[in-house]
Design a protein around this nucleic acid. Structure first.
Length: 545
RNA sequence: GCACCCGUGGCUCAACGGAUAGAGCAUCUGACUACGGAUCAGAAGGUUGGGAGUUCGAAUCUCCCCGGGUGCGCCA
């Protein structure tokens, strides 16, 4: 099922010859949709815009969709959908299992790299964003009919494991009994130990070699560290209500065996240079080279990232690879993508995108830290929100605050604001859903027909609600292509506002006949869209609050 | 030094080159025997950091400044 807007757009384009850039009307008096197509054509044809508009309008074959279009202002063409078209569209949406979200005609394999915590460290505020945003994109793209493969690129490999393992042996700890916070404390001790004890540092470095060589004792302890970490991550994921499971794990260690071959392929492609003893790839436009192999012979994390791309293209057959990672890594990923292209790990028809998100700030406007200056853990954050609201509401508050702002900007973590039930917040949307659910619940008690249809749309509030409902599919599609969840948030907020006005002006239970049935249908359609939209944000649509 | 991101009412944020820059919070004024008032109606509040340019049209694009943040070859 294709949306009314896309249908109308196609009809206009058939006459105008160019994309009409149909937009939602910016004001009620401009109808439902507006197009600037005549203004743009006037530019190339050298005729007055309104004249062009008049010629176009005469040729449009859209009378089955809209009222006669109006030409306004400098040459805008305004469209108002016919009421019977709107009623039918909402009725169709009610019967649609996908709630008006069209299944893509071009299903892709989309790899989303997100969450990616580090072994032996608790997740903190940064991981909150990576996890919540990635999870939302995963849900949205799945809903659109793409095959989504989540990849959590956990930090389970590298030099830090040398000192971790050595510290465990020094202290005589059974690694399998550790909790994640205990493992993190161990990390801190190991790190300090490494800095102050030369002998320990030497042993730690030797231990890294043993790990890479596959020494059994070392590997066993390493595995225990991963296991206790995964237990901690999964606990956090369960609390967050995200989709991630162990099936989504694709840690750095997974690519370890590929690295020599990756580097060999790079060298064969002739793009590598040895500089200061390190194997580098220089790319035009980048100040610094990518260091693929360090002068000591070890592989850098860039090599792992290249191996990951190679794997995702060759084995997972990705058409699109999305990285949900902190904005501070933008330069790094630009370079990785560029090198991957040069090395032909990344064919031209495979898209890579870095969804770069900003930093979470405290109410003082500075990066969110504890008094001691350490990163705030995810659990601390959730605890703080749950002090002010019931868990599902607190979670909605946090996720929505994260998703409703533009991703590339920093945002202030202000619990007091985000748990408010008024304004553009998660709890407000949950409230709207609970309220409309309550009406339907009461109506059910009194009985209403199975086959709800929208037949009457006389009140402006009803029409506005119906119009917004028909846009849901377009909004989801837009988020799927732009990867900007805040647009879905804004839409749902607007819908909730329209529902509140409708609710105020159009009594449902006290009305009768076709009006009552229509209003119930509008309520049900709104409930379904809110539920679907909230679910895509990873927020639970509550039946009661 | 170079690069990238950000700068929009008191505060937090929208606006895919388009019409009179929109919301919410806070403030003020109204509407309550209320399908959940956790609401609705209304008011006030802006030379979109500054300047120049591009065009029919700029918060948006280009250039130069100012302010804030981040990143810049062997940590990941």
């Amino acid at each position: 099922m294709s949306s009314l807007a896309s249908l109308l757009s196609a009809r206009i384009e058939a006459v105008a010859g160019i994309d009409p850039e149909l937009r939602s009307a910016t004001r009620p008096q401009f109808g439902h949709y507006q197009s600037n197509v005549a203004l743009r054509l006037a530019n190339s044809e050298g005729k007055p815009p309104r004249e062009i508009a008049a010629q176009l309008v005469a040729k449009f074959e859209i009378s089955d969709l809209t009222e006669p279009p109006e030409i306004a202002g400098p040459g805008f063409i305004n469209f108002r959908l016919r009421t019977d078209v709107l009623t039918q569209a909402v009725t169709d949406e009610l019967a649609d299992p996908h709630v008006g979200v069209s299944q893509t005609s071009n299903p892709q394999v989309v790899v989303i790299d997100y969450s990616s915590p580090n072994v032996a460290k608790q997740m903190h505020v940064g991981h909150l964003r990576a996890t919540v945003i990635g999870d939302c994109l995963r849900r949205v793209l799945s809903m659109l009919g793409h095959k989504v493969i989540a990849q959590s690129h956990i930090g389970d490999w590298g030099t830090q494991f040398g000192m971790l393992v050595e510290q465990i042996l020094d202290e005589g700890i059974d690694a399998s009994t550790l909790t994640l916070p205990e493992a993190e404390a161990l990390y801190a001790r190991a790190s300090a130990h490494f800095g102050t004890d030369q002998d320990f540092a030497v042993r730690a470095r030797r231990r890294v070699v043993a790990l890479q060589a596959g020494d059994e004792e070392t590997r066993n302890i390493w595995r225990e560290l991963i296991n206790v970490s995964l237990a901690g991550f999964n606990e956090a994921y369960a609390r967050l209500g995200v989709l991630l499971t162990n099936d989504d794990l694709a840690g750095e260690s997974m690519y370890n065996d590929d690295l020599p071959e990756v580097v060999a392929e790079l060298e064969r492609s002739g793009i590598t240079v040895v500089d200061d003893g390190a194997l580098c790839v220089f790319v035009e436009g980048f100040a610094a080279p990518m260091i693929v192999r360090k002068s000591d012979g070890g592989f850098g994390y860039s090599a792992t990232d290249l191996a990951a791309i190679r794997h995702r293209v060759r084995n997972l057959h990705a058409n699109r690879i999305i990285y949900v990672v902190d904005a501070r890594q933008s330069d790094h990923f630009d370079l990785v993508f560029a090198v991957a292209r040069k090395a032909a790990f990344l064919p031209d028809d495979v898209i890579t995108e870095h969804v770069a998100f900003g930093t979470v700030l405290g109410t003082d406007g500075k990066p969110f830290k504890t008094r001691e200056g350490t990163a705030v853990t995810l659990n601390t954050l959730l605890d703080a929100a749950e002090e002010q609201a019931a868990p599902p509401v607190a979670l909605a508050a946090i996720k929505y605050a994260d998703l409703s702002n533009g991703l590339n900007k920093d945002y202030v973590f202000d619990v007091g604001r985000m748990v408010q039930t008024t304004g553009n917040t998660g709890p407000y949307l949950q409230y709207a859903h609970a309220r409309v659910t309550q009406v339907l619940r009461k109506a059910t008690a009194r009985g209403y027909g199975e086959q709800l249809k929208v037949l009457v749309l006389e009140e402006p509030a009803e029409q506005m609600l119906a119009l917004l409902l028909t846009r849901f599919g377009d909004v989801v599609e837009d988020v799927g292509s732009t990867l900007q969840p805040h647009r879905l948030c804004n839409y749902l907020y607007e819908l909730s506002g329209a529902l509140a006005i409708f609710y105020e002006q159009c009594p449902v239970l006290q009305s009768s006949g076709a009006v009552r049935d229509s209003r119930l249908a509008l309520c049900l359609a709104t409930k379904r869209v809110l539920a679907s939209g909230l679910t895509m944000l990873g927020i639970e649509p509550l039946e009661r609050m």
